[in-house]
């Protein structure tokens, strides 16, 4: 048989033999398989891909992939990935975070990664909770969500990462849902193919600390709009969004940031002439 079909086994080749420690039912499993499907679809050689993450359940992803990976410290994945991509523009660099990792401790780096617009794909598995540390609220958690650390809820307005991404300069903004692995794979393919900083929020239920999120299946819907490059239209769309519209919501055309490297480097002994008396 001559099948170029992106079969499950082509995608499977991007999985490592390490078994995820996630809770059965966790949305992150599907994100993992969407990522492998996307890589397979793009036909990326695994050694040309690096997946960089922070700390959290979601950030465990690199070890489950048969690509290069970096499981760094909490909140700094976009910075580490930026250094890697600038030093190695030939690699496809994907960043994976949770909502705590990406928007709380890593919030400043999120702004600047959007603003810098390096050619990275940033996948945030948003479960509106800190899974790894046992269920504390994150910046995207609903204000009245009761929990042990902030009994009765934080009382704080939830952060809207897509609006922040748009305002900060991300070049591609999309939302997926782990219950829609095919759609999510497609978003990841487009995110990787779009130059610059691509931000994909994937709603990824935490079945252990947010069993209520099993209902997300009924809440999500394809965004009733086409992708736009009009930043004003995108802003209106994202500001009024209820958080459950899926699809590509903004695609811009900003030129990605790259460090310029001279094609004719001189040797260090040449530059030290400037110090000679």
């Amino acid at each position: 048989m001559n099948t170029q079909t992106v079969s499950a086994s082509a995608a499977r080749a991007y999985k490592s033999d390490v078994k995820p420690v996630w809770c059965p039912g966790c949305g992150d499993f599907t994100v993992l398989s969407a990522i492998t499907k996307a890589f397979a679809e793009l036909g990326l050689p695994p050694e040309q891909v690096a997946v960089v993450s922070g700390i959290g359940c979601s950030s465990r992803i690199p070890a489950y992939l048969n690509t290069y990976g970096f499981h760094g410290v909490h909140g700094r994945a976009t910075a580490l990935a930026t250094g890697l991509k600038l030093a190695r523009p030939d690699l496809t660099v994907v960043v994976a975070s949770g909502d705590g990792d990406g928007f709380s401790i890593g919030g400043n780096h999120f702004l600047h990664a959007c603003r810098r617009n390096v050619d990275l794909t940033y996948i945030v598995m948003d479960n509106r909770v800190y899974g790894m540390t046992k269920g504390q609220p994150s910046p995207t958690t609903e204000p009245d969500w009761d929990n042990a650390l902030t009994p009765g809820g934080t009382g704080l307005r939830a952060f809207n990462p897509l609006v922040i991404a748009l305002a900060s300069g991300a070049n591609f903004i999309a939302r997926g849902f782990s219950g829609d692995p095919v759609g999510t794979a497609r978003l990841i393919v487009e995110a990787i193919e779009t130059p610059g900083f691509s931000f994909v929020e994937v709603l990824s239920p935490c079945v252990t600390f947010r069993p209520d999120q099993r209902d997300w299946r009924n809440a999500v819907r394809p965004a009733p709009v086409q992708p736009t490059g009009d930043i004003g239209a995108a802003a209106r769309r994202l500001m009024t969004d209820d958080g459950f519209n899926l699809g590509v919501l903004y695609v811009g055309s900003r030129t990605p940031y790259q460090t310029h490297r001279t094609a004719a480097p001189v040797s260090p002994s040449e530059i030290e002439q400037q110090f000679a008396v």
Binding site: T5, E41, P181, V182
Partner: peptide
């Protein structure tokens, strides 16, 4: 068998 299958993206 020997039939050629079309390439289909996941979506």
């Amino acid at each position: 068998g020997a039939l050629e299958l079309p390439h289909l993206s996941p979506w």
